[in-house]
Design a protein around this nucleic acid. Structure first.
Lengths: 133, 133
DNA sequence: TATGGGGCTTCCAGTCACGGGAAGGTCAAG
DNA sequence: CTTGACCTTCCCGTGACTGGAAGCCCCATA
């Protein structure tokens, strides 16, 4: 398989796949002409990585997850620990975004949004003590 | 005021303040010795930027917000429009994170997390069709 | 007056996960 | 034989900083 086919089947840009090779996430073979020659197993890994990335795992996490995936003697506890750390990062980010949404939607709601210059949003940013997490 | 004082009062790292000058967000004066000489108005702007950043506004948004703040003939509708666009980005991000949290917490919950290798998290990543937003 | 330490300055490089685009080799169809 | 689609590598740019090196500047103390 050439890169475009894997890209289509894995749902990833070809550029991204080359990048994943560069950083050592995958190691496709090479044809005589220098083209990357992907096996089914490479495609499988790429799909794995794609799903992990879409769940927000970092590239480093993906590397660890792949290693665990390929280690048939892994402890599921290690996988779970990794996933739980990530889940906590997600939850922290969620809390942060919720706080922003809260403050910002209040400000937006208080602003008339007409042609006149008075604006609670700007005043809030200028010196609002009740603003910001 | 030297940079360390403004940094302390604005709650921003000195490095960040230098960066904000470099990209033209602020224009502090210079003392004879080459040191930046901050006025109260510079501090005020930095606090404004800091609050906007903590609400998640991009640097470009901050630039626009500052311009609107300083334009006494602004229309509050322009400010509101900018804030609403940002609010929508936040809400989109929230939805994305909620979806991740959803999927991931299901997987985590299904994983026993013991010393054995079977792991629903890894199987989910490997070929779970019900996985991923 | 020398010296030490903490400030300040600039500049360069790195972060994360790619994306854009140039320059050039390769392959299948017409 | 040419065209055009594919492939390759290489380098630069993104956003919003952060870290560190090299080198002034200023003040206090010995």
């Amino acid at each position: 398989m050439n890169i475009k086919d894997v890209a289509a089947r894995a749902g990833l840009p070809a550029k991204t796949i080359r990048y994943y090779e560069e950083i050592g996430l995958i190691r496709p073979l090479r044809a005589a002409n220098g083209y990357r020659a992907f096996r089914e197993s490479d495609l499988h890994k790429l799909e794995f990585i794609g799903r992990a990335r879409s769940l927000g795992f970092s590239i480093d996490d993906c590397r660890s997850l792949l290693a665990l995936y390929e280690d048939k003697a892994r402890a599921s506890g290690d996988v779970k620990a990794l996933a739980e750390r990530h889940l906590q990062r997600i939850e922290a980010k969620l809390a942060e975004l919720h706080a922003m949404q809260d403050t910002l939607s209040q400000l937006v709601h208080a602003c008339k949004g007409d042609a006149r210059p008075d604006c609670p949003i700007l005043s809030g940013l200028a010196k609002g003590p009740s603003c910001c997490a």
